[in-house]
Design a binder for these strands. Sequence first.
DNA 1: CTACAACTGTAGCAGTCGCTACAATATTGG
DNA 2: CCAATATTGTAGCGACTGCTACAGTTGTAG
Lengths: 180, 180
Amino acid sequence: MAKSETARQKLLPLLAAHILEKGMGAASLRPLAKAAGTSDRMLIYHFGNKQQLISGILAHIADGYSRQLDASFGADQVASREQAIARVLDFTNSEEMRPFLALWWEIVAGAARDIPGYKENAQSIMVSLLAWFEEQMPEGDPDPAGGARTLLTMIEGAEMFKAIGLPDIPNRGIEAARPL
Amino acid sequence: MAKSETARQKLLPLLAAHILEKGMGAASLRPLAKAAGTSDRMLIYHFGNKQQLISGILAHIADGYSRQLDASFGADQVASREQAIARVLDFTNSEEMRPFLALWWEIVAGAARDIPGYKENAQSIMVSLLAWFEEQMPEGDPDPAGGARTLLTMIEGAEMFKAIGLPDIPNRGIEAARPL
DNA sequence: CTACAACTGTAGCAGTCGCTACAATATTGG
DNA sequence: CCAATATTGTAGCGACTGCTACAGTTGTAG
């Protein structure tokens, strides 16, 4: 099946861009192939079948996402938990994050339905996000590990409300994310 | 197009059951029709087109969900915020809630992608859930409205982590959901 | 140069998709 | 009873789905 690794590496960015823009609902072979300047025939040739193709694209996107996280936040420390959570929520409000978030909820939905590959992908994204966020915790926090989990749970809840167009509901809640 | 309201009311429970079990990915006319003991031809006849059909089914499910909420929780008061949040999380762990939650994330994903109808549906579900949860807040809570929003944000974050198979991440966070 | 492997275009299969045209039957109001 | 209306089955359209068979072309190693 798949022969050339470099061929895949050349296709992946274009395939990823297409999925980020159009969503998993538009992730069928012919549109993907067109977006990548090739044919459905060649996508199967390089990736074996559709499932492996999608897995490859999602993994590629997850990689880019975590690299973007590191790049977007300097090493400057944050002073409080409130500041840490506010910084992340601000960041996810940016226009460039929209496609990632829309895709994220599709991945969550796939994981909740036990579609093969989705749960693994979602977990790897969240585990690395948690590790990254743990480092972002304010210096001297009494419980960075627990705090990061608290705040990340809060953040994800808030992101859900943002996604469905009710961004104000978590507002008051976030103020409550103080260390005990 | 749609003529008989009673005909729709007879079909909706069967259609809803099919979507809850199989997910939106299996929500195409012919399987839905088969599950409801009719034909694709008749679904279009009764509901006009697929979008109105799906909207009707989702609204029906949302109705049933909120009625189930009221039925599953007695009027017995809860003593603390921790107890309120624990009760809801326990409830959502039950097997009968699984289909609702899986469908919920598909609705969130659709809302995040601006698929017509999904955002409205998601909002109406969350608004009524919030209103219900506000009533469930412990008596004497210093800020029931804000607290309900705090806890619901936390709950939804926790539900997401459960959905992707990482139920332990929010655990420590939930202990922190104390009133200020 | 030749043999072999890597790559690619064309065409198509068998299935599903939402939806509709047409014709027939069932029901109901006058 | 008769006419209008409501309901239903059959058949199919044109588009799309993942994937494959076949035939070729290209690149490379001996």
